[in-house]
C-alpha cells in the first residue's frame, strides 16, 4: 500500500502507453440486471418480452393470473431501469387502463418496494412477485384508485362484478376500461 503513489508524475509520460480498450464496458447497472434476469423464477403465469434484446434495461412483463379476481386477464407492465439501478428502483407501469385499487388509471402502481421501501438488495424477482401479489390480494388500505378501493372495502361482491366488467372492456361508474381478457 505504501508505494501506491510514487513520484511518477514528474516524468513526462509517453502517450504511446495504455491505449487499452475504449470499448463500451458492461455497466454496473447492466451487470446487476443480467444477474437478476438469470435468477428470475417466472411461473407459467409470467412472461418477459424484450423489444430490443441488446437493451436489457427495458422490457415488458406480461402477467396472466390463473387464480383470484383477475383470473383470465392479460396485464402488461413496462420496466424501465436506469443506470442508477439498483440504487434506484425500476420504473414500472401498467400498460392497460385497469380497475384496481392499487393501480391508477394512468398505470402507476402502488407497491411499497417500488418507492419508499426500495433497497438495493432487493432484486427484480421481488418486484415481480410483488406485482403478482397485487392481483391475488388487491389492497384497499393503500389505495391509488380510491373508487375501486371503496368498492372493495364496502361491497366485495360489487367490487368483483366491477373487476369482471372492467376486464371485459366495459365501464365502471362512467369510466371505461381496456379489454384485457385472453
Amino acid at each position: 500500500m505504501l508505494k501506491i503513489w510514487s513520484m511518477k508524475q514528474q516524468q513526462q509520460k509517453s502517450e504511446a502507453a495504455a491505449g487499452q480498450s475504449k470499448k463500451k464496458k458492461v455497466t454496473a447497472a447492466q451487470l446487476r440486471v443480467q444477474k437478476d434476469l438469470s435468477e428470475l423464477s417466472l411461473g407459467s403465469t409470467m412472461k418477459t418480452h424484450f423489444p430490443n434484446p441488446d437493451d436489457i434495461l427495458n422490457f415488458t412483463l406480461t402477467l396472466t393470473p390463473d387464480e383470484g379476481l383477475y383470473k383470465g386477464g392479460i396485464f402488461n407492465f413496462t420496466f424501465a431501469i436506469s443506470q442508477n439501478f439498483p440504487h434506484e428502483p425500476p420504473k414500472v407501469k401498467c400498460r392497460e387502463k385497469i380497475y384496481h385499487p392499487n393501480i391508477d388509471l394512468e398505470g402507476n402502481v402502488c407497491l411499497n418496494i417500488l418507492r419508499e421501501d426500495w433497497k438495493p438488495v432487493l432484486n427484480l424477482n421481488a418486484v415481480i412477485v410483488g406485482l403478482q401479489f397485487l392481483f391475488l390480494e388487491p389492497n384497499a388500505s393503500d389505495p391509488l384508485n380510491k373508487e375501486a378501493a371503496n368498492d372493495l372495502m364496502t361491497d366485495r361482491d360489487r367490487f368483483k362484478r366491477n373487476v369482471r366488467s372492467a376486464m371485459a372492456g366495459g365501464s365502471v361508474k362512467g369510466e371505461s376500461f381496456d379489454r384485457v381478457m385472453k
Binding site: 470499448k23 463500451k24 455497466t27 447492466q30 438469470s38 428470475l40 418477459t48 424484450f50 441488446d54
Partner: peptide, 24 residues
C-alpha cells in the same frame, strides 16, 4: 450450467428468461 453472456452493447446469449433465450 445456465450461462448468460453480454458485452457492453450486445446481449450475446441469455439462458433465461425464456423470451430472451429465444431471441439470442
Amino acid at each position: 450450467k445456465k450461462p448468460s453472456l453480454s458485452t457492453g452493447g450486445k446481449t450475446l446469449f441469455f439462458s433465461s428468461p425464456e423470451s430472451l433465450r429465444q431471441q439470442t
